[in-house]
Design a protein around this nucleic acid. Structure first.
Lengths: 347, 347
DNA sequence: CTGTTAGCGCCTTCAT
DNA sequence: ATGAAGGCGCTAACAG
């Protein structure tokens, strides 16, 4: 913002002129191609480029090549550790393939997600990664699928994270098995009477985890009463609201709560403390995801560890190997139960 | 990945043909310009675009206009809540200006940062936001400044977050005042003998906070012994290492620890617990930033609240108003001390 | 191996 | 108000 002379950036043309070669030679020297370039000329070009501070215009490259060297990433909320951890994996994976990541946030709105996908398509990214659970079976979902299909028809690759049964490459998180294993572990710890905190039922991630948990309990002839399933938001505040609702109902007949994600569990933990209910003495609690905070709260939170960064990296890997396949692929990533102090063995 | 016919995306040309108008008219109808277009024709174009699922190729627009409608964002580590929260503000701010965000991670390497800035410049972003503390006075910093200056000379706007005294627009976080206020508050709570956990001294954020803290203590005639300043990493693990070092030295003469960020403080909290040192009974601890986790740990962490999302949004705002100014601007954002259970009033 | 040239998709004067 | 045509920076045939 000083009074600097506003020139325009050096172009390949400038570099070629500076080095005394043709455009083509300059291009080949800098961005490499199948064709070989005399080493001396190449050095001259590189030197000229360096001297002029030349950086290839990606837009120009993209337009000449037909697609950009980018990955478009859609997350619900980057401030949520679930997504930020996954995003770090996506960025790392993209980096290895020398791809830059363009990110957009839906703020958990399906309309917004659709808009964003359209906007991102404008960048002609090589890969489009959609994270976050969508609402199954809605009209918006149909529009989304249409948009994504159109995108793939123009040469891009879509990867969906965590949403199964959409006709695209998918990195699926095994929510069912993880929750089932968690249920088994909790029963093994001596718990018998459960409540659950979930998101709205159309959120697949949420309903899968609930279902898996029920499956696990079922193996022991235990059940989770519908009255004890508190549906709120998938957020910290959702956990707080769920605690309030649960305490209204009383917890005499409950010895353990399963919150379908850690963020909710942590909100619940905080609220329970505020309301004078001791965890784990009065009630135990478990979450899902194993975000960093889970081990830092007191009591440390029992949860299902998900390798979220790996999930992100795998999404990129899947996309970049898509052309070696003829049909969509699904990679399933499981989680491991991590027992911590929030669910001690019960006498 | 299905056997879908791989066509290429619809172009403006296609839309124009479909609507029976010229390229120019189509362009003006869709992206608007100063010139007017007959409303009926405009509708016809819009309809055609919709029918063909047309999405303007941003690269082409970028190349025609000279710069892309993007913001490039550099963070140290998006999985770190400090950065992810700030990033959410940047994304939101960018969105309002209909700009997409391209993000890159330095993983806290200065070399990497320089490389990334170069790579990002290739996208010809309208704005380049650099977050995270850099290492002052190094040769790399000089190269970085050179690169950034070159970028601005080609019409872009650089905004630095938190690093003062670089010749660019800056959103400065008032680390000095925040740390000073924290020191005052802790003294007011009855603490007198302090230790500090910091990052390497060349990290401005770290050294500013330490200096501010010392300033605050100085007002009461108190000092922070150099022997009691533990320099480790700016991370959770850094906090753990610092605790180990501190315990080796003994803590009989210490009643409160100031960790220059919450992430370190939380690592420290965890380590102290593991090593049987009670917080706040044996020693109190305070952090800086007020990341979400700070209120969820036990005891809840005293800290300095920073409106990180606002900081990100302000960076964009600053950049977009840069052309209304003739010189660089600095916006300073302060923090508020939040006293919590980790530093109770001392008898 | 190197240079020439025709696009890639869009915007924008410049005519009409 | 609309259309024709040149140009943005780069790549990739195609010649030489």
């Amino acid at each position: 913002m000083t009074e600097a002379t506003r020139t325009s950036a050096a172009t390949l043309h400038d570099v070629a002129r500076e080095a005394g070669v043709s455009l083509a030679t300059a291009s080949r020297s800098i961005n490499g191609s199948t064709r070989k370039v005399n080493e001396e000329l190449r050095q001259r070009v590189l030197l000229a480029a360096d001297k002029l501070g030349y950086v290839a215009n990606q837009s120009a490259q993209a337009i000449a090549k037909g697609s950009a060297s980018t990955v478009a990433l859609v997350v619900s909320d980057i401030a949520d550790p679930y997504f930020s951890t996954m995003a770090s994996g996506v960025i790392r994976g993209a980096e290895e393939a020398r791809l830059l990541v363009t990110m957009a946030m839906t703020e958990r709105s399906a309309e917004r997600e659709l808009e964003l996908v359209r906007a991102l398509r404008g960048g002609r990214p090589r890969v489009l990664v959609l994270t976050g659970s969508r609402f199954a079976g809605t009209e918006l979902e149909a529009s989304l699928v249409k948009e994504l299909t159109a995108y793939e028809e123009t040469g891009g690759t879509v990867v969906i994270v965590s949403q199964r049964s959409l006709p695209f490459d998918t990195v699926q998180i095994d929510n069912l098995a993880g929750a089932r294993d968690l249920a088994r572990a909790l029963v093994d710890q001596g718990y018998r009477r459960f409540a659950a905190f979930t998101g709205v039922s159309s959120l697949l991630t949420s309903s899968d985890r609930l279902q898996g948990f029920r499956d696990g309990l079922g193996e022991f002839g235990l059940a989770l009463d519908d009255d004890r399933v508190y549906r709120t938001d998938f957020t910290r505040d959702g956990g707080i609201a769920a605690v309030d609702a649960m305490l209204d109902d009383g917890i005499d007949d409950i010895d353990c709560v399963f919150a379908v994600n850690d963020v909710m569990a942590i909100g619940a933990l905080s609220r329970l403390r505020d309301r004078g209910v001791s965890v784990p003495d009065d009630i135990a609690i478990a979450g899902f995801d194993d975000i960093d905070t889970a081990r830092d709260v007191t009591p440390a939170l029992t949860t299902v560890r998900l390798p979220l960064a790996d999930v992100g990296a795998e999404a990129i890997h899947l996309a970049l190997t898509a052309d070696q396949r003829t049909s969509v692929a699904t990679v399933t990533i499981g989680g491991d139960v991590v027992l911590r102090a929030s669910t001690p063995r019960r006498a």
